[in-house]
Amino acid sequence: MSDAPREDEVLVIEDLQKVFTAPDGERTAVVDVPAFSLAAGEQVAIEGASGSGKTTFLHLIAGILEPDAGRILIDGENMAALAEAGRDRLRARSIGYVFQSFHLLQGYSALENVLLGMHFGPGPDRVRARGLLEQVGLGDRLDHRPRQLSVGQQQRVAVARAVANRPRLLLADEPTGNLDPTRASEALELLRAVSAEAGSALLLVSHDRGILERFGRVESFEGLRRAGEVSA
């Protein structure tokens, strides 16, 4: 396989493997993906059962976890080959992440939560942060802390924070897992719209059929795995 990804590919994964060792010494390859790619602006959903390794897969792409083997090219830069500080830089610059539990910082206002993410990327831009929160319908909640916001509002802050640095790749891990079906649908549309407007490719993992059927391209995580049982 060529080292150089296609020009329009934001994410290219080659022979990615992550092995966990159980306390009894048994080694299991939680992630073993021979090939996967995502084009610029593309929106893809990955389905899979809870505990199948989807979150680990996203953590590997985000550089939060270090793979045992393989390559993860983000805009041509191999995340897997970088030291931790380099992965931190690449993540801040090119990746946005929406977590299932949103992971907002409790002592910070909605605006500060968005601004803080910008500090580690291109730098704080108060006007853009306000604009994003207004775009997700929270223009009148800028100074509210997460505890003063509804679950749906917290989710919208998380979306605004994730796209604040204009990431090339937006990762979403069960982003509607804590919402009721109506709000989940609204949240998904918002995520897709904001992602499209920011020009980010969206990679979303979920086990919710209602969410998955809204995507044109849906991959099964089991289908991405290398065929056969793998023991490391």
Binding site: D88, R91, A92, L105, Q106, L116, F120, R161
Partner: peptide, 16 residues
């Protein structure tokens, strides 16, 4: 620890 993990996920380095 959760706060630090969130900061790291946003791109903060260990040194930060």
């Amino acid at each position: 620890r959760r706060e630090f993990a969130i900061l790291r996920s946003l791109g903060a380095r260990r040194g930060t």
